[in-house]
């Protein structure tokens, strides 16, 4: 792979939270490259710093030190407004607890994003992509957990983002529903070529990734490259 294909360049990244009088070192100097079109699984136990890393990559949080470059642009030096623009036009998020707006239907939850994007899909198409073309007008409370997460994925991909960041997307789901969600993510990565990062503490999910980044205690403890990717349907946990 050439350097042209690098989407994220992370160098010596640290993040320190101050919780009252205690300092928590969430990241202690992380170096990482993410490449165009790959599906990366970041694996680690709770407190390993993976969510913090994802939030910084997504422009939701800022680093204490070090640099993060997205396609050559330094996110670590971006202003609030630049970060908002970055999130608006480049990144799609999927959260563990879906974060849907309960007062909006599936279609409207997607529209919240497409309305502010440059080249969005139609909300109906995005929902069809995740297999929810028939449940457009249901409110979150009328959908199952897996369906809600698929709405969240539709919402994240509807803007045609260049990167899709998923924070424990199956964390709140049972096994079979989780597999359905992972299949959707895999298909989007494959069909749309969206660079995708999935963080999880579930090691079994790692099988579907191009690369697996292991995090522990705020540091990268290793990176594996899967020569053979498993389809999600073959994953077991």
């Amino acid at each position: 792979m050439t350097s042209k294909d690098v989407v994220f360049r992370v160098k010596d990244l640290t993040k320190v939270y101050e919780m009252g009088e205690v300092k928590v070192h969430a990241l202690r100097g992380v170096d990482l490259y993410l490449y165009e079109g790959e599906l990366v699984v970041m694996l680690g136990p709770s407190g390993s710093g993976k969510s913090t890393l994802l939030n910084i990559l997504g422009g939701l949080d800022t680093a204490s030190s070090g640099t993060v470059k997205y396609r050559g642009r330094a996110l670590s030096k971006a202003t609030e407004q630049e970060l908002t623009e970055y999130r608006r036009f480049h990144v799609g998020f999927v959260f563990q607890f879906y974060n849907l707006i309960p007062s909006l239907t599936a279609r409207e939850n997607v529209a919240v994003v497409t309305e502010i994007s440059k080249r969005p899909m139609k909300p109906e198409d995005a929902l069809a992509l995740v297999g929810l073309g028939e449940r457009l007008d249901h409110f979150p409370a009328q959908l199952s957990g897996g369906e809600q997460q698929r709405v969240a994925i539709a919402r994240a991909v509807s803007k045609n983002p260049e990167v899709l960041l998923c924070d424990e997307p199956t964390g709140a789901l049972d096994f079979s529903t989780g597999i359905v969600v992972l299949e959707v993510l895999e298909r989007i990565n494959r069909e749309l070529g969206t660079t995708t990062a999935v963080i999880t503490h579930n090691a079994d999910i790692a099988g579907m990734a191009d690369r697996v980044v292991h995090l522990s205690n705020g540091l990268i403890s290793g990176i594996n490259i899967n020569t053979v990717k498993k389809p999600p349907s073959e994953l077991r946990w």
Binding site: T84, R87, F93, N99, L100, V112, V113, I116, K159
Partner: peptide, 12 residues
């Protein structure tokens, strides 16, 4: 959480 999601999607 809704506010967080909106911001994550680029609402200023």
């Amino acid at each position: 959480e809704q506010i967080a999601a909106l911001k994550a999607f680029g609402y200023s």
